[in-house]
């Protein structure tokens, strides 16, 4: 029987051995450069935005002192006498964020828990796409929804729920109607990010909990939600950032009056709505009002930056690494 033998000398004909790179690699280098460019673009644009905002903001604070900007004096940058008390529009933003998050966070988390833990295969197959459609509706449509349906409805039921003098029905633009609609708008974001976090929990944890005699509710509240906590926090912060930054709904439904209030019945002007309204109006280049736009934008930028930094810290703190 023939034994296996190592191949004898390599055939002597053929090209000489070469370990140098073939020219085809150039294409790869080009693609890597292109991809790096794409990644760098995001960084460059961010830097560009910061620089573009920084210059006019510094100019603004040359004309208007810090103590006037960070104050409760009237907000009237383009009136005589002027007022730059940013707390008025900061309060407007805070009010909208407050009411929209009061709706979006519990409802989004609830939807995520339902979808992930309770929904039958069929229910999930219907609900998930509906939520995703909700996410894709243009914000201006939500704004119309607020003006045409939610505001009249709230006007009607407001006196029933709030007694006495406070029970006067609101006007057609006010905090609650914008807040409610914005909240509805954010639900899908919160729900889908939370649900992703919950579905990433290893199946073994759920089995362990059921194996110990947990009810479905206990599995959801004591195991799934705590284990997915970092993802849930991330979804909340994402929702919050969207509420802070949302413009169209508040522009249409919250009003145009800078009001230092959190009261649901009042009209407010948010920071974003101020920028949206003023920038599309008649603002002369180089006027104080022009620079005010940038100062408010810078403040918004800083707020969202801080919120995101807090979120990253929270997500790190609560993250569990599952193997």
């Amino acid at each position: 029987m023939a034994l296996l033998t190592a191949p004898t000398e390599p055939s002597s004909v053929g090209p000489p051995l070469s370990l140098e790179p073939s020219s085809r690699r150039l294409g790869e280098k080009f693609i890597v450069a292109l991809l790096f460019g794409a990644a760098a673009l995001a960084v460059l644009i961010t830097v560009g935005i910061v620089l573009a905002i920084a210059g006019p903001t510094i100019e603004f604070f040359r004309q208007v002192p810090f103590s006037r900007f960070f104050s409760t004096e009237a907000w009237a940058p383009n009136f005589v006498p002027d007022g730059f008390g940013v707390y008025n529009i900061l309060a407007g933003t805070a009010a909208i964020v407050l009411y929209s998050c009061m709706i979006a966070l519990p409802a989004g988390l609830g939807a995520a828990i339902y979808l992930n833990e309770y929904a039958s295969h069929r229910a999930r197959r219907i609900l998930k796409p509906v939520l995703e459609v909700l996410e894709g509706i243009p914000t201006v449509v939500y704004g119309l929804f607020a003006l045409a349906f939610v505001a009249p409805l709230l006007q009607e039921i407001w006196p029933t729920f709030v007694p006495g003098k406070l029970g006067d029905p609101p006007g057609f633009q006010f905090v609650l109607s914008a807040g409610v609609v914005l909240g509805i708008m954010i639900i899908p974001t919160v729900a889908s990010v939370s649900q992703d976090a919950m579905s990433a929990i290893p199946h073994g944890l759920r089995e362990a909990a059921y194996g110990l005699g947990s009810t479905k509710m206990q599995v959801a509240t004591k195991v799934v939600v705590p284990s997915a906590f970092s993802g849930i926090v991330a979804s909340f912060v994402l929702g919050l950032s969207r509420a802070v930054g949302e413009t169209m709904v508040v522009l249409m439904a919250a009003g145009a009056i800078a009001n230092l209030t959190l009261w649901p019945n009042d009209p407010v002007l948010t920071m974003t709505a101020f920028i949206g309204r003023t920038a599309t109006g008649d603002v002369g280049f180089g006027t104080t009002t022009y620079y005010t736009l940038f100062a408010v934008a810078a403040l918004l930028f800083v707020i969202t930056l801080v919120v995101n930094m807090i979120s990253i810290a929270l997500v790190r703190k609560f993250r569990e690494v599952y193997e």
Binding site: P202, G204, L205, E207, A208, A209, Y210, G211, L212, G213, S214, T215, V223, P226, S227, E320, Y322
Partner: peptide, 19 residues
């Protein structure tokens, strides 16, 4: 659920809760 409260289970892969 009552059944599982009387009959405990240990799984192939250790699955402690992240607690």
């Amino acid at each position: 659920i009552e059944v599982r409260r009387r009959i405990g289970m240990v799984f192939q892969k250790a699955n402690p809760f992240p607690k």
